[in-house]
Design a protein around this nucleic acid. Sequence first.
DNA 1: ACCAAAATATGATATTTATCATGCGAAAGC
DNA 2: GCTTTCGCATGATAAATATCATATTTTGGT
Lengths: 226, 226
Amino acid sequence: MSKCEQCIVREFSSLKALTKDELLKLSDCKTSYTLKKGAVIFEEGENVNGIYCIKDGVCKLTKLSANGKDHIVKLVTKGELLGQRSMISDEPVNLSAVALNDMQVCFIPKAEVMGYFDKNNNFSMNVMKTMCGDLKEADVQTVNLAQKTVKERLAATLLYLYQSFGENDDKSLKIQLSREELASMIGTATESCIRLLSDFNKQELIALDGKKIILKDISSLKKIAN
Amino acid sequence: MSKCEQCIVREFSSLKALTKDELLKLSDCKTSYTLKKGAVIFEEGENVNGIYCIKDGVCKLTKLSANGKDHIVKLVTKGELLGQRSMISDEPVNLSAVALNDMQVCFIPKAEVMGYFDKNNNFSMNVMKTMCGDLKEADVQTVNLAQKTVKERLAATLLYLYQSFGENDDKSLKIQLSREELASMIGTATESCIRLLSDFNKQELIALDGKKIILKDISSLKKIAN
DNA sequence: ACCAAAATATGATATTTATCATGCGAAAGC
DNA sequence: GCTTTCGCATGATAAATATCATATTTTGGT
């Protein structure tokens, strides 16, 4: 079993507030998992009795809408924690989490984490700060959905994927989403998303190579995205 | 100066976790304000050195979008706290708060509130739970904006106003928003909003009397809203 | 009470976006 | 290896929504 004390990822999450003692205890009670692309970490409505710390990989958080379509609310990557909200509010999770590529995650049982809230104020403050950041992001997301066109949102999302997850050696986006997933992130029909990608391709803002997407003209994309 | 200990509103907010001693101290350091409809409590980008506790009235939280239009992110009413996020993350507020009707609010300076975080774990937990609820709501909001039509969103918003703020003696919605504000809540053009209200009126789902809106057929509205 | 300005309303039209239909190519299952 | 399915692509069309123009009504100020 790997030691949390030496886990680099810890430094990026609220867990960085933990003391040496707490980390040692954490190492003993955590469970590590390796997940394949497509694996479901948890599903909307489930009870998750603890939190997941993402050591490597990326997953999507989705929510089922009234019309039966999944909407991708957020992408979450290494260093971030999953399931805090459900644990704090003592409710079933309201989002599903699915691996977008191979992942390594550690599960920390609820009892352990709740102890930190009681005894370690820094930890509580870190969690609160994270949630404040999430809320701010959510507001931005809301306004973008309400006010921007699909084209603007697509450009913004491509830039977000580029800036947050980087590119491969061949310059293509590291995070590979299907057209359907991309559409579900920006909130549009799959065909509309495909059509706009084709347009961007024709205007040489991006290049398409099968599933791969290469951003060719970042500054123009930024202008479109606002 | 009124005593926080006797303020009913306190029971609805995270402040309910405070001890008698803390409440007494709070009474001394808070400042009470009476605000007229339209008054600006704070504006996006400002530094707010504390939190506001709403004793009475309703305000809108808005965010300026890239195209220069205000979007109403949320309505906040008595019992709720304003400006927590900004205080916790130590950043300027990212939303503006404007009174929708006459309000009574109390301002509590940052130093006082930060003390509660340190010493009163129940308070921290309450704040966290509130933020978890806000995040959940934000997810729902995001999915609605992404997947529902303007008509569905209008119906849902009317129902929300009805359920959250109630009706006057003449059955009209207690919260009176201008068409522009309503449009800015559901994320559409003012004209589109007006047109759909007219449609609802013709279908006898609602009745319009100047600015007043009366919900006549709640169950049909619910069907439309999903 | 009167006027100017703002809010509401509605028509005409343009634009954006979704939906339906179809084809094509690659990947997955037998 | 073959077929079947799935993801991507594109055209045609319909529906939703925004925009511009212009009345009409309401509101606020003096």
